[in-house]
Design a protein around this nucleic acid. Structure first.
Lengths: 241, 241
DNA sequence: ACATCATGCGTACAGTGTTCGCATCGAAAG
DNA sequence: CTTTCGATGCGAACACTGTACGCATGATGT
């Protein structure tokens, strides 16, 4: 053995010369989204995320200031998914807004863990993707002919509806995902408890028992479309008095 | 010293004979709400709650199965706050629904930490107070004349709007509360960053800068009322074709 | 007087986000 | 080619968290 070999760290104990590319913020965000989609929000820990990326947990803090900031980045990244139609002519504004709302709902259902953060997007979180989306949506209301002092309120109304229904759906889907069953199985399994709980409130039972054999996903789609149409009806009435 | 005194625990070290009333689930829930209102959701820990009640943290588990269950109880307790008009005649249904929606929003703004849980109320959390509220609200839609197969959808639309806007407002108010400033101070302080962020999206700046001198709380009230009127317009249109 | 049972609580465990200081690297500078 | 230096990875540690377990103690029923 030559003497130039250090005694404290042999070739075998010493870790391999780093072949990994440097960790980047983009990799961390992308892997966090994958983990969140797969296991839900309460399974996201810095250590687990680090393991998935083949690094130590504390290494992440070189690229991200805190877990809260990571979540901010993750949320804005997801906001980059829907493509919002930009150029609109005034006649087709309703179709354009319907499409945007539908995309936003789909985005939330793909990533149900985002729902509780949704309300914060706007003044609290002002990431570039969220801003781009808001700006494009506002342009649709402008093209529709809303006066300048009403555009914001009209868009806010639409967004409140979308956030509200998507939040409710996402919470419901997250729960089902944790149970490991399909949506139909879960609904069927809950029915006895639901009937018991609604014994004193028969009104609440009427609507749901009528649709007992309809596919639950179909019901949710219909409900979303119904409410969206009502909201847009109410907004349209302001344009043509 | 008489020999009947135990050496391990003298009269002085031994805790006083318990004079406290027994802990009850109601006390725990009430104190949890007080703590949540005062310090926010991430400051609620079982140990802190126990200290406030003058007991050890683990004692709470005799009355509550887990922290999650405690939160379920807390949420339903808050749902008991708004009083929803029960008897309605068909002509005043709009006033009744407006009142209910306003009460629900006020409830959320009193307890902003409840917002992320709001979406779960319905199928996920089925506490007695939440059921009572839902049933009463549904009765208002029934009295309005909605057909049986549309009542649920109509109420869902209204609830989605209320949940959405209340969630957004609550997130915003929670953030301000944590900053320690008043709403007006906070808005003024954020303006430079907001202008910077909206440099590439001038549309987003137009609406907010027009109202720069209006009291922000007034703006929020107006926005809520505007959207609520639009939603109710859209729903009303289904009744009188 | 004794047995039974619900309740309070000290201890402990696995897990969290985050800080700190040290080791190691790639690239720039002499 | 050598030396320096800032950026990066990471092991150890800290203050916390929710909660399971077992023991002590109180009130209650016989």
């Amino acid at each position: 053995m030559p003497a130039d070999e250090k005694p404290t760290a042999s070739v075998w104990t010493r870790p391999r010369p780093r072949q990994r590319e440097h960790l980047t913020r983009e990799q961390i965000v992308a892997e966090a989204i994958r983990l969140l989609d797969a296991e839900g929000v309460e399974e996201l820990s810095m250590r687990k995320l680090g393991t998935r990326l083949g690094t130590a947990a504390t290494s992440l803090y070189r690229h991200v200031a805190s877990k809260d900031e990571l979540i901010e980045l993750v949320v804005d990244d997801v906001y980059g998914e829907p493509d919002v139609p930009t150029a609109v002519d005034g006649t087709r504004w309703r179709a354009a807004v319907t499409r945007t709302a539908t995309e936003l709902r789909a985005m939330t259902l793909r990533h149900p863990w985002i729902a509780p953060e949704l309300g914060q997007v706007g003044l609290v979180h002002i990431g570039p993707n969220a801003m781009r989306m808001s700006s494009a949506l506002l342009a649709q209301f402008e093209a529709a002919g809303f006066p300048a002092d009403e555009m914001d309120q009209a868009m806010g109304t639409l967004m409140a509806y979308v956030i509200g229904i998507a939040t409710a759906e996402a919470a419901y889907l997250s729960l089902i995902a944790r149970s490991g069953k399909t949506e139909q199985e879960w609904v069927a399994g809950l029915r006895p408890a639901f009937d018991e709980a609604t014994r004193e409130h028969p009104r609440l039972r009427a609507g749901s028992s009528a649709q007992q054999d309809v596919h639950p996903q179909r019901i949710r789609d219909d409900n979303f479309a119904y409410g969206l149409d009502r909201v847009l009806d109410g907004l349209t009435a302001r344009l043509t008095p």
